[in-house]
Design a protein around this nucleic acid. Structure first.
Lengths: 253, 253
DNA sequence: CGACGCCTTGATCAACTTCAAATTTTGTGG
DNA sequence: CCACAAAATTTGAAGTTGATCAAGGCGTCG
């Protein structure tokens, strides 16, 4: 997705040991990834002056609909869910974000969705104004944010196809495939078997797929009985063949 | 949505009669809107050197999945639908674009969806390289494109809620409300009644809503019988009260 | 242990789809 | 302008999928 065109825009990446890079950033896993990865040491210094790290416990809110947003964050670890709520309580998860995604609707003081920690989440936060000043003055910063937005848009549209046109089984398979691709999975000796923890509980999966919790449960059982997945426990999934799981995302009937 | 923060970034808008503005742009309805609206006369000149205008007939393809894209376009009039197709033929419209939207997945040579004219469409096209060079060298250009991407992302997520959690009637009402808000409607003497042409046929509405054509037809009939809309003919809709239509988008049962 | 949260399973029901056909609208050529 | 064919839409009846309602199981924590 990232093309070689981008490489030209980036300031040549300096060695991690370069003393220009601020201390907080030097040991950061996101240092070379996501938005931070395309910043110059100078910009990192400017940013790091206002950086704070936070841990959010699972199910706590990072951004509330309607509230003014004063910070943006880099996700260092964990999974964040973006949810929309209807007046009568119906809920839809409209996006999942993983490290090292950038969190926050830039150039807008209000969010039209809330962001909640699906798992425990560690973030590196920056005041809104610092990010926006940097975006205004540093084209590479705005470009990095733009790429992040484009990635989210591609993912949202892919999910629209899932929501609008896939069957319940295909939806659940698509969800498992999404997680398998985004969580760093343990690869088994038999290099084709992968294993991972689900970051969402059944109700959240239902809210992501536009289904009910019962239907999600039944489809998981169905995928298990058909041998496409195995369950070590409710949260731990083993995928013997990623190709077979992928096939289940779009079943020719 | 556009905030006053943006105003500061924009070069002060020059008078339309300013001779610096190229001829093709001077008479253009999009001149002050969309991406072009935030360009300087110099940038417009640079862009206009490579500008071509096209008309696409309804149902013709502007962008085909998998094909390399060599141009970006500004929509001058008409409606463009972005569609995704599954191997077995299931189809989902993942976005609708209206004038003066910018069309094309920037910074990527391939599109993961196709773009088709839903109605006759007039566009102003630019070679990919010119746009991307401009985006690289002119921060205000990239910012304008970024704002467009953010707007599309907000719309996509709003629609994910519709696809995932709304009933068939609510979906159709939401679609009509979307069109009423994006097509410039005729306002009746009685200032509350609005009237517009549907840019999509029933099958396309179904593909946008994740429904079948029959269900769409039945829901339209239902909305008509309940007095929320009137039909002048298959394509012409009259909305006596926009507030009532909005209410139908999210019905407390 | 007992209560609670979470997940699964079963039975029934409603919403939406599918299949089929009728009806209306649109386009074309004489 | 009419006749006719093709396309689009509507309507009806039956079938399916997934939702709802209800109950029970499992694991954790006080």
């Amino acid at each position: 997705m990232q093309s070689n065109k981008d490489a030209a825009r980036k300031t040549p990446r300096l060695d991690v040991h370069n003393s220009d890079v601020p201390l907080v950033c030097r040991a950061c896993e996101s240092r070379h990834k996501g938005v931070c990865g395309s910043l110059t040491p100078d910009q990192l210094v400017q940013l790091s002056k206002h950086t704070t790290k936070h841990v959010y416990r699972s199910q706590s809110e990072l951004i509330t609909v309607g509230d003014d947003v004063h910070t943006y964050s880099n996700i260092l670890s964990g999974v964040v869910k973006l949810t929309k709520l209807m007046a009568d309580g119906r809920q839809q998860i409209v996006g999942l974000q993983f490290a090292p995604d950038f969190l926050g609707r830039i150039f807008s003081s209000q969010s039209s969705y809330s962001a909640e920690a699906a798992t425990d989440v560690r973030v590196c936060s920056f005041p809104k104004s610092v990010i926006e000043d940097l975006a205004r003055s540093a084209p590479n910063m705005e470009h990095a944010l733009h790429e992040q937005t484009l990635k989210e848009l591609d993912e949202a549209r892919e999910w629209m196809l899932t929501l609008g046109r896939k069957t319940a089984t295909e939806k659940v398979a698509s969800f498992l495939y999404l997680i398998a691709s985004n969580i760093d999975p343990e690869l088994d000796d038999d290099e084709h078997t992968i294993r991972f923890e689900l970051p969402l509980k059944r109700l959240e999966i239902a809210d992501f797929l536009g289904l009910t919790i019962e239907t999600v449960s039944r489809q998981i059982t169905k995928l298990r009985k058909s041998g496409i997945i195995e369950l070590e426990n409710n949260r731990t999934v083993i995928v013997p063949s990623l190709a077979r799981l992928q096939g289940a995302c779009e079943n020719e009937q």
